[in-house]
Amino acid sequence: MDSQAIATQPVHGHDEHAAHPPYLRHHFATVEQQRETASFGMWLFLLTEIMFFGGMFAAYLIYRNWYYPAFVAGSHQLSIFLGTFNTAVLICSSFTMAMGVHAAEMKWRKPLVGWLLATIVLGCVFLGVKADEYHEKWEKHHVPGLNFSVQDFTHPSAQYKEEPPLPMDMAQKTQVYFSLYFAMTGMHALHMVIGISILLVLVVRAWGGAYTHGHMTTIENFGLYWHFVDIVWIFLFPLLYLISRHQ
């Protein structure tokens, strides 16, 4: 059995190998190969994320076909202004993240820290607006399962007087819309929270020069994650906020 040899560090040191940068792992032939491998792995992870969000998008698609009037009425309860604002904020944060990756590629330490901090701030602005929207949903009794009333849909208030009142059975189905709204934006927000947490670590390490003296694969792969979260929102925004706004 050779398990001991697997479990422990090899005793022979670096001197037996050709000289290589400290961040090049032994099982890779070149830095490029290591970088490519990490990128490939990150993409495989993102594909599983596509399938994860894809399940919710499929549910959305079918329920929207079944209960279209309820989806229209539910969608009209969302603020287009806040949705558009948040979309712009998220696109800005993707831009700052892309600039951060560029700063890391150029080995600029302080610009890298600055761009990462800007990304954190924009991410927090997004979450703040999202929290405000959730709070409004709570106050309007639009949270299925916890605090829900069909009142706004069976008897639209003066503020929404152009909205046709829904029959009771369809008004109940707005719960399906709001369930999907909270599930999809909630999972998206969770990804943002995780992203911001990782960014905080990255900023501290970037300040210490971890990515400008070593290699920047971590920054590059985190950028892929952040842009992926942005792409999810790019689809969520029109699907949740912009259903039949012309009505």
Binding site: S94, A98, G223, L224, H227, D230, I231, I234, F235, F237
Partner: peptide, 14 residues
Amino acid sequence: IACIKAVLVILFFM
């Protein structure tokens, strides 16, 4: 429009 935006993000930002 969402697909075009996503493709731009994937091709250039990513």
